[in-house]
Design a protein around this nucleic acid. Structure first.
Lengths: 345, 345
DNA sequence: ACATATATTGACAGCGCTGTCAATTTGTGT
DNA sequence: ACACAAATTGACAGCGCTGTCAATATATGT
């Protein structure tokens, strides 16, 4: 059984193909009752436009590409679900493209991807959102894109949370609990988010009049293992911190692991905080105090922004979307030296 | 700058469009030196076929759909990465389609998806892999599909591990450690995997001569929260189990959480085992003994199977792929009553 | 009522590729 | 060298849709 085509609908509705096309695409200049006739015919025949034909004729694919590198499963999952949802409303699909962030030549790889898939726009997740070679390529090719949590949001469209303020709020939480020796585990510096969080850590100390102590800072790369290693370092010194703020939840999980291995009790002996509110955060024991980042909302927003850009021919100008974060206080942080300020959940 | 087309390459190579098309698609009946000429021209001009035009003319999309419902982020991530990798080799893309598993009318939703996206095949993740209405639709429409971890693998192509044997191996591990009162937390019965694991649990008990005790079994739905609730139930009785085998890692995490809340030590007071080897498993404390399921490999295999089916015109007949699992012994299980048979990692 | 501006509709080419089938070249057996 | 089969190549229609632009219908001002 052959599929229903535009022509079939047109015949049924007694109008031209082009008019049906207009209705399908929500174009203006269709009289109300004509539109009604067409919509009825479409419903009656259960017509769905052929995406390939649309792409070919219209020179666009109704597809958005999601570029990702070394991200956590949970992050990608949320972002892609949000994007799918936003795209679904306007029948835009999502094509995934994992990038080998190791090799420097992301641009070439992406260029091939663009040529083949003909995506109409791109969503860039960190750390790819800060790959300048790629940005230049996209600008040159005039491919619309949205960057998630970039280092600098002064060009193109971006979606992020106020990383600095969020980290400051977490620091305030720890400081309010009486902590003064607060350790920090950095994320990979290629991520803009890592930098902001680190800057904010230092700024909060300074604001409170605490002298920044490099010995309380350890490098990490957002992975669980790097969190463990960092924790080893921070907990080994003679005068270990009373709280550790890890740049993300994965690393915080590593800290918890290491702390337990060393026989410490959390939060009695040490408070631990993360960042992201990955599913993991509430599944750990003790559950993790963290910053909730609206990853799904960010994916949704990114797609929505991209679509307005794609559809409105003139771009509405660069735009930054800042979404709300939320400090989630769970069981892994407590008053310094006394513990148990919060009952376990 | 207009994109390079087939015609441009043909002119450059001094052959017809059709011949270039043959080379691009790896079709037979092209003389070796002709092929060489064409390949050179392609490389020289950096030609990439236009996917939309190919789809329209060839009546296929070079796209495979991944249907998923209520799965864990980590599972989806691995499966999709595996599938992408397998697809990449033959320039097949992957389109995601989340299904509302709640509503019964998955078929209608998927039918729309098929019409629009024109995917050439489908990968079904559980529990959608067992939706019979959908299967019938796909059979009727002659859409190739591969089912992951289905309940019954007696029709179409499937990819799974030997769930029954894997669960049996976990039971053997626990029994070998001396456990006799082994609790079990079921997964959602809509998942074939849940059933197999549960069956296997019962079979192992029987084989060992232990009388099955319904009080040691609790319902779950693969979620962390359901694991917590199930654990409450199992640990509340007068004579609690010395080990709990949860049907997946998420629920096992819930059990750990609940056990800690109740002041139990793991594995001294109780051993806990999961299933899947999600990233979570090694991040928990204590790290979780579980069954490693090669999710990425399964995604890869599913895509590969699908592609041979799509490309070879006659289907090579139904095929079942059984991949290897692996028992991963970590720190959450130990000898009954004594604990610490395994040092913490 | 008439001319003019504006909104609505339709005819048709053509997007870049593949399927079909016919034309041509090459190989094989005698 | 010839007839014939097999391999290789090419010409061309058409996949289902949208962009362009011309044709027609309706609204507006006088």
């Amino acid at each position: 059984m052959r599929n229903i085509r535009l022509e079939d609908v047109a015949r049924k509705a007694g109008v031209s193909m082009k008019t049906v096309s207009r209705v399908v695409n929500g174009e203006p200049n269709v009289r109300a009752n004509t539109q009604e006739k067409v919509l009825e015919a479409i419903k009656l025949m259960n017509y769905r436009p052929n995406a390939s034909a649309r792409s070919l004729a219209g020179n666009r694919s109704y597809l958005v590409g999601l570029l990702y590198g070394d991200v956590s499963p949970a992050y990608l999952f949320e972002v892609q679900n949000g994007a799918l949802k936003a795209g679904n409303e306007t029948h835009y699909g999502l094509v995934l493209h994992p990038c080998e962030t190791v090799e420097d030549d992301v641009s070439g790889d992406v260029a091939d991807f663009l040529k083949q898939s003909r995506v109409d726009g791109l969503i860039l997740t960190p750390p790819i959102s800060d790959n300048m070679a790629l940005i230049r390529l996209l600008d040159a090719e005039k491919i619309p894109y949205v960057r998630l949590s970039p280092m600098d949001s002064d060009m193109g469209m971006t979606v992020s949370i106020d990383e600095k303020q969020a980290a400051a709020e977490m620091m305030k939480h720890l400081l309010d609990l009486g902590h003064r020796r607060i350790g920090f585990i950095k994320g990979p510096m290629a991520h803009g988010a890592s930098r902001w969080r680190y800057e904010s850590y230092k700024a909060s100390l300074e604001k409170t009049g605490i002298i920044f102590n490099p010995a309380l800072v350890a490098d990490g790369d957002f992975s669980f293992d790097s969190g463990k290693i960092a924790a080893e370092k921070l907990l080994s010194g003679g005068n270990p911190p009373t709280a550790i703020f890890a740049s993300n939840d994965n690393m915080a999980a590593g800290v918890i692991h290491t702390a337990f291995e060393r026989g410490l009790q959390i939060p009695r002996d040490i408070s631990i905080a993360g960042f992201d509110d990955a599913p993991l955060a509430r599944q750990l024991w003790p559950s993790l105090t963290t910053i909730h980042q609206p990853m799904r909302g960010m994916g949704h927003m990114a797609m929505a922004q991209l679509l307005t850009m794609i559809r409105g021919d003139d771009c509405a100008g660069p735009e930054q979307s800042i979404l709300n974060y939320e400090l989630i206080i769970r069981a892994s942080t407590a008053n310094v030296g006394r513990g148990q300020s919060h009952p376990h959940p």
